[in-house]
Amino acid sequence: MSHSERMNSHSILAEGLRKRYGDTYALDGFDLAVREGTVCGLLGPNGAGKTTAVRILTTLLRADGGRASVAGFDVAARPAEVRYRIGLTGQAPAVDEILTGRENLEMWGRLYHLGRRTARARAGELLDRFGLGEAADKRIKHYSGGMRRRLDLAASFILAPRVLFLDEPTTGLDPRNRDEVWQAVRTLVAAGSTVLLTTQYLDEADRLAHQIAVLDRGRIIADDSPDALKSMIGGDQIDLVLREERDLPAAAETLAAVTGAAPTVDATARRVTAPVSDRIGALTEAMHRLREAAVEVEDVALRRPTLDEVFLSITGKGAAA
């Protein structure tokens, strides 16, 4: 299919994007296609090019090569049309500290040329929806980190954007605030918007995204559904948590013998992990042998691999690298 044909079914379409800083490519042939009404998690370590990709797709940055369209318009040729159809929440909340929540939203609404009355009505509506109704007339400097982030999100929702870009929206938030942001994103997607979410947190992408694209050194190295990506590294994982740290080597040896794979050992969590194919067989055999070796097991679990493990196996290094 040609670029223009694919534009009809995909809200975000990037083909061969390149961006160079000096001698290094921040993006080096970046391809991505996100279907309308879905959430795509863009995952990668610091410096992989996530923010550069978002900046190009939101018309903030000009690519050196390749092409991209968002909401049906070319980002380089028709930036004004794109800007009317997107929302962007960057890494630092872009809110005005001195103004109240309501004043912030009214200001942004008027900058979208909504007109005074519509901007005011819209601000009230969004404040309620994002749980900021009570704090609406307080200045932002009295807001918590989570409240600022929600206000920032609310600002990106003013026009109910067709495509929403969230660049690490929950970095630095506590779990409760993170849940609130996730809930807001789910609501928007339920209403038909498309979301591109960059994150370093694998569980975040796992919870929200229909599609996960893994970015490493400026290129997409994996792009699939979360389940398909997890299947890439094989079946289930077995986790053993021991009572005593000194038993770790013995447990690792036992697990290696039972599963035929090399286990990973997390000393601080007193945990040994290995992939298994015969779930129940491996579980009972391992428990039997460990009891014979007098190794006390505090907890045992069979589970699907995490995206962290997926990432490790694709890139050969951890996501936090």
Binding site: A80, P93, A94, W108, L111
Partner: peptide
């Protein structure tokens, strides 16, 4: 990021 927000808006 305030300037970026302006620039990502019409």
């Amino acid at each position: 990021g305030v300037t970026d927000r302006f620039r990502s808006m019409p």
